[in-house]
Design a protein around this nucleic acid. Structure first.
Length: 411
RNA sequence: GCUGGAGUCGUCUAGUGGCUAUGACAGCAGACUGUAAAUCUGCCGGAUUAAGUUCCAUCGUAGGUUCGAGUCCUACCUCCAGCACCA
């Protein structure tokens, strides 16, 4: 499949300045740029969708310039509904490192070029910036942008000068990469399209050059219609919370997230988030439609995404784990030492001898002891496959289950 | 700078001195299912208890008035609108 065909097949096409997608196949300048701000110490599956698109370009011979926004991250990309908290410089430094590692894990290619826009902003002088970049923008145009309109005026939440200027900074990135490396195309999520066009504008204005933007639709939660992202509070993180990774998403939960996708979304998600070929996808979807209760498509999706993000070994392990934990015939008391040991790598662990309520709270199965009691009363908790309703001490090795797909090990 | 309006749970929202801060969405759990969707039921600040038992917190921040404050007063912060100043 040609690049243009694949992009459209996988649903990676939203607004773009490229009139005929087929131009992408024959384009001489096969360099593109994509950027992410270090606003957290992990990317989410929203970023992953854009990265999968980048990977698609890379597979077709494009050279990626991947920018971590050390400078833009210090300002913050304006949201629709309110000013962002400024991050401390230390935090940004830390976030940059984490995000870089994640990007490298997903875009595997020898000619990836990683950049940090702080490198070219560090020594930028304010006056120089205004004279060169500021002069190239008309205030009317800037004020006309949708998010500015949303935030200024009746019912708006206001916007600071700093955030207002964000788009110029990002625009300058594009100009810089165009000048220094001859990059003439930017990839982005549809929400960034406006920012990207600032770059095009600058390149045209100052270099009399032609540059393009290609954007991918935002990944929308099909049920709620909201996008997946950290601002929405329903983030699925790429970083794993296993081995003390804080509030991120454990590999097991990550896998479960995909496995639980409704039938209506699975085809769309599998195209975006996996590297499976068209005929593979088609045959999976066909089989899936014949027997949706087998969740074949969800399984393929979950396996494949987990593999991309967390590696084959982890993906295999949680897939296995899932099989054992969800098989109706499983006798929970018959697991071997080795199997239990394997569980503890991916599931929260509590020491035996503790009260059940404490176990639930300390493993995070319940957010608080109060919740733990509530779950017990509702019959949401089972021990080794048997429903529990009382708060007793657990003195043997056991698998605790809360709800449909949250587990912990007592050992 | 002046005048007026606004700030309530993750989000939107009701609440003009009276005890228990509405309602919706999102989220979580139960039933039914296929670890799906839809539907029905319950929960939805924290701790504590055999127990809705008791305690604490909470309507932008800090004070005050009052037996009693989300509600009234004062100051401050943030936002919006209009006017003025400066152009």
């Amino acid at each position: 499949m040609k690049l243009s065909e694949e992009l459209i097949y996988r649903g990676f096409k939203a607004e773009t300045t490229i009139e005929n997608p087929a131009d992408l196949d024959t384009r001489e300048n096969k360099k593109f740029y994509w950027g992410a701000d270090p606003s957290a110490d992990s990317l989410t599956i929203g970023n992953l969708a854009a990265l999968m698109m980048c990977a698609c370009f890379v597979r077709h011979g494009y050279t990626p310039y991947l920018v971590v926004g050390g400078a833009t991250g210090q300002i913050g990309d304006p949201k629709e509904n309110g000013e962002r908290e400024l991050k401390s410089l230390d935090e940004i430094e830390h976030n940059k490192k984490c995000i870089k590692a994640q990007i490298e894990q997903i875009i595997k290619s020898d000619n990836v070029i990683m950049c940090d826009n702080y490198d070219w902003f560090r020594d930028m002088k304010y006056l120089d910036f205004l004279r060169e970049v500021g002069k190239a923008f008309s205030m009317t145009q800037l004020l006309d942008r949708q998010f500015v309109q949303d935030r200024i005026g009746e019912g708006g939440s206001g916007i600071s000068y700093a955030e207002f200027s964000y788009s110029l900074i990002q625009g300058y990135d594009f100009l810089h990469l165009y000048r220094e490396h001859g990059v003439a195309m930017q990839l982005c999520g549809a929400d960034q399209y406006g920012n990207c066009t600032s770059g095009i504008h600058l390149i045209k204005r100052l270099e009399n050059g032609k540059a393009d933007v290609w954007s991918t639709p935002l990944i929308i939660d099909p049920i709620t219609g909201r996008k997946f992202g950290k601002s929405e509070g329903n983030a699925v993180w790429l970083a794993s919370s296993d081995n003390g990774g804080g509030n991120f998403t454990s590999i097991f939960d990550f896998y479960q997230f995909w496995l639980n996708q409704p039938d209506e979304s699975v085809e769309y998600l599998i195209k975006v988030f996996t590297l499976l070929e068209k005929d593979e996808i088609e045959s999976i979807i066909k089989d899936h439609q014949k027997a949706p209760e087998k969740r074949l498509a969800q399984r393929a999706l979950a396996r494949s995404v987990t593999e991309i993000v967390h590696g084959t070994k982890n993906a295999e392990a949680v897939e296995n784990l899932t099989k054992m934990l969800f098989d109706k015939n499983t006798d929970f008391t018959s697991f071997s030492e080795d199997e239990i040991l394997e569980f503890t790598k991916y599931l929260p662990v509590a020491k035996k001898g503790m009260e059940l309520v404490d176990i639930l709270a300390s493993t995070g199965l319940a957010e608080s002891k109060k919740k733990a009691r509530e779950y017990l009363a509702q019959g949401a908790i089972s021990i080794n496959g048997v429903k529990a309703s009382d708060d007793t001490a657990i003195n043997q090795t056991a698998i605790i289950k809360k709800g449909k797909n949250k587990f912990a090990v007592v050992k």
